[in-house]
Design a protein around this nucleic acid. Structure first.
Length: 294
DNA sequence: TCGATTTGACCTAT
DNA sequence: ATAGGTCAAATCGA
């Protein structure tokens, strides 16, 4: 699969997860009896999740300016706000008996349709497979590998919905509460094809966590690819590198990654960091890039 | 040996 | 009554 398309998929998923997180944090907005949102930490968290969401939106906006890698790809997202709320008659207690579960319709779900079974940054364990009525292909059931050790309740279902071209529908249920996300790398490729130097942003979760975001979000480190070998840097075998081409850059911002200009490179990193850490300041769905000062 | 997958049984929501 | 989500024993394979 094309690297750019993978990156796009991950951005879409990140965007959706951020939306879900924001919905969770804001869920008590209308509840007069609950003043949890007055808590300064909660307000801070709400602001952060809004910024994270906006960052994903901005990055997707940039991708959309260069949509070539999306041409053969269709992603359908269900806004979690459109999901039917849980049946009020349902008890919130989780029964410990076999076969007790919430049906997917009553739970928060996100659906994606893609040409390959979606790869995400979580480890899944298959726990079931069922033939579905009027469906040619059976549905596979996965739960988070950390259900037992961390109690993560996230599950997903993958079902092939079309033969040619192969089309898979992935339905995510629940939110990940585990902290064991797989490592990510983003390559800042050099625009010169003759130059083999490539900068990697490595999201190694063994690094120190970012103090400004959730503790589960790893701090990126930037490594020149030439030095990766020296550092015995081993790319994830199960994931291709995520490539951020230097060409689809912001028209209005200095985001060319070149080695000839240290200043430009640092500016680029600042912009990238802005994308990663949501330091672009704007209201929802607006794009107002606020350049870093200093 | 141990973790992951398979698969039939079990159970609930519709 | 039944479709579909989950469990858990059996099986696989590294």
């Amino acid at each position: 699969m094309e690297n750019g398309r993978k990156a796009f998929e991950e951005l879409v998923r990140g965007h959706e997860f951020a939306k879900q997180l924001r919905q969770i944090i804001n869920i008590d907005d209308d509840d007069d009896d609950n003043n949890i949102n007055d808590d300064s930490v909660t307000v801070f968290a709400q602001n952060l999740v809004t910024k994270v969401l906006n960052s994903f939106t901005n990055t997707l906006f940039l991708f959309n300016k260069y949509p070539s890698y999306q041409s053969h790809h269709h992603i359908q997202l269900m806004d979690s706000s459109s999901i039917t709320p849980s049946n009020p008659h349902n008890t919130s207690t989780i029964k410990d008996r076999r076969g007790c579960y919430k049906r997917r319709r009553t739970a928060e779900t996100t659906e994606e349709v893609s040409e390959t079974p979606t790869i995400d940054n979580h480890q899944w364990r298959k726990y079931g497979q069922k033939p579905i009525l009027n469906a040619k292909y059976s549905r596979n059931y996965y739960r988070c590998s950390h259900k037992l050790d961390q109690g993560c309740q996230a599950t997903k279902q993958v079902q092939r919905v079309q033969e040619k071209p192969p089309l898979y529908k992935t339905t995510y249920c629940g939110h990940h509460t585990c902290k064991d996300q797989l490592n990510y790398e983003i390559i800042l490729d050099n625009s010169s094809p003759s130059d083999s130097s490539i900068f990697l942003i490595n999201f190694d979760n063994t690094k120190q966590d970012c103090p400004f975001l959730s503790s589960s979000f790893p701090s990126p480190s930037i490594i020149k690819r030439d030095e990766c070998n020296k550092q015995e840097f081993i790319p994830m075998s199960s994931f291709d590198h995520y490539l951020v081409s230097p060409h689809p850059t912001l028209d209005a911002s200095p985001m060319h990654v070149t080695q000839s200009s240290t200043l430009e490179f640092h500016q680029s990193l600042d912009v990238m960091a802005g994308v990663m850490y949501g330091s672009l300041d704007h209201s929802d769905d607006l794009f107002q890039f606020q350049p870093f000062v200093g």
